[in-house]
Write a protein that binds this DNA or RNA. Structure first.
Lengths: 354, 354
DNA sequence: TTGTAAGCGTTATCAG
DNA sequence: CTGATAACGCTTACAA
């Protein structure tokens, strides 16, 4: 039952446009991708025909022809629950897409699932050439993904500088600066026993924040105190807090710097449950400046970074890389400490001590 | 010219496999997509050749040929901040991808941005045929997206049943059931003035939860009380809570049912800040059963739904639709109320009243 | 059961 | 400048 005679709203092709404009397909292509070799007059005529016919190049055909997918990929690691809590991705993605509006690109989001591990996900993306490049986020210590992605021939940008040899440009923010600001803020408030609830040391940003914490402590002339490692989850943040608050009265911290807001929330609850008043008995700071940090009681002092901008800059950099343009690493604006109610002067007994 | 003729790591094509197996391209294609008409022996030989050469069909070529993209799309509305707070998407996406592991599909995530509105996003996806179908989430009242998507010729599934004529199958969960459970729980605890902090009435799930709230109230023999509409954000949840707590002592609710966890968090903070004890003076319930609901003080009673399963079922349904298989709407398992510390018996003065 | 050849809609090549 | 013609790699009638 085919009625080839009367085409049912078939989409026009480059051939139709060529015929309509009275030129060859090749010329239409040249005119479209404004390349030299087409007289201004002819180009105008071709473009007019294209518009009149409502023609838009077929992406699949173009894709096959030029061997590009016009898509970028972001694969999210396996620990869904930990990631789920992280509002970072939403803003980051919004930033990425803000660059797409003009570029005609698309974002392919892949999440490693029980049935498909991370490596397999990257391989699949590369095998099917689903994307032209990927964003490497949540860098790990000695991250094997940079070698993998390189081997797969994909372009990439890393979010943060990896600690392994990398051929990819990076977009980073100085997390340490934020942690340092938090520590200085607390030290200025008279705190002398400041602890840190860190992210996993296997993750670069978790590790760097912890290192910055130690450095800042030293710089402030304070003695090293407890640093408890977690997996960035709320449960783990709660556990770490219980551990810290369980220390003898003379070792218990008067302030805790959390590596992310979620753990700070959980920590706040643990303290309150134990009858420890925040901020009078204990000051706390978070990281990420989540919307919720403004809506807890007390509201939480936190380090704010610009995830949207991170996404936008990363996308621009990746697109430039793919286009073969020379690129440089980019350093984002410094994170800033947003002081709220969860931090105040150290408890009397403490500040009076020296 | 058997295996390596100094080819620069060029990826093998179907032609190479055909030559290697001593058959035609067509047959290789048939064997690959196991279609009838190929002798078992030949098929085995072809598959062996393919494996030996490490051949995998070129998705772009196939895509152009069969006019399919093997990708599904999810476009997230414009209010990033509101969405950002919602952990729903992460689990939903994980569920969707869990179905992809076997299907060779990919998820294209599009977010409307200031420079590109929602409608334009769908149109762009369709114009470039980036996806074979889309997930329609966060249904609105009289949602024009179903007509749009239909007009664009895309396949789709709706998350929840739309209130407009729809040609698409839906996957839904009975939110009302969850709200009802919350109300019944509170009523059983002696609460008689229960308020509701609702989502926007322009969003179907926000509206339905509010309706279910009213129905449940009536069923419990309670009088209608305040229902305050919000945009689902924490700020708005805080505002609504302040409004409710500002009511005269004889009208102030002793319990508040929030339409999502985020607003419940913000509401909790508002109450605490006002010196109102939760749950002794005020009981509250959330919706979504976020990880954080377990880590507040007090922990929050919430309605849990299975977002992962929602994603998995939706993906399966959409894929089936695209494959032209007959499908039916699916109803997910009932949401369940997870009782925690934020709900307890109504204040003395109240329960003693009747 | 297997081979042949015509698409799919672009872009790239290379004579006029 | 212009315009046939050949890739790109696969699917799919249609023959043999």
């Amino acid at each position: 039952m085919s009625n080839d005679a009367e085409r049912p709203a078939a989409r026009p092709t480059i051939t139709d446009v060529a015929r309509h404009a009275g030129v060859s397909k090749g010329l239409v292509s040249f005119a479209l991708n404004d390349r030299p070799g087409v007289s201004a007059e002819t180009r105008a005529r071709i473009l007019a025909s294209a518009r009149e016919l409502g023609w838009t190049p077929n992406l699949r055909a173009r894709s096959l022809s030029v061997d590009r997918s016009y898509a970028l990929g972001l694969v999210i690691g396996r620990s869904v629950d930990v990631i789920a809590a992280d509002p970072f991705f939403h803003s980051f993605i919004a930033g990425v897409e803000s660059e797409f509006s003009t570029a005609g690109q698309v974002l392919v989001l892949a999440q490693a699932t029980p049935g498909r591990e991370e490596t397999a996900t990257y391989r699949g993306l590369a095998a099917d050439k689903r994307v032209d490049g990927v964003f490497l986020s949540d860098l790990r210590a000695g991250d094997d993904r940079v070698a993998l992605v390189r081997e797969l021939g994909l372009a990439a940008v890393t979010l943060g500088r990896p600690d392994v040899e990398s051929p990819f440009p990076s977009v980073s923010v100085d997390d340490g600066r934020g942690i340092r600001a938090a520590v200085e803020h607390l030290a200025a408030l008279g705190h002398r026993r400041i602890a840190h609830v860190a992210g996993p040391s296997t993750m670069l940003h978790g590790r760097r924040r912890a290192e910055a914490f130690t450095t800042a402590l030293v710089a402030a002339g304070l003695e090293p105190t407890a640093i408890i490692e977690t997996d960035f989850s709320a449960v783990d943040g709660a556990r770490a807090t219980r551990e810290l608050l369980g220390l003898g009265a003379d070792r218990r911290p008067t302030a805790i710097v959390y590596s992310n807001d979620h753990m700070a929330f959980a920590g706040l609850a643990v303290a309150q449950r134990a009858g420890i008043h925040v901020p009078h008995d204990l000051s706390i700071t978070g990281f990420d400046d989540t919307e919720l940090a403004r809506h807890t009681f007390p509201s939480i002092t936190s380090v704010a970074t610009d995830a949207f901008d991170w996404g936008a800059r990363s996308a621009r950099l990746l697109l430039a890389t793919i286009a073969g343009q020379p690129v440089d690493d980019v350093e984002l604006s410094e994170p800033r400490l947003v002081v709220r109610e969860s931090t105040t002067t150290a408890p009397e007994s403490e500040s009076a001590r020296h």
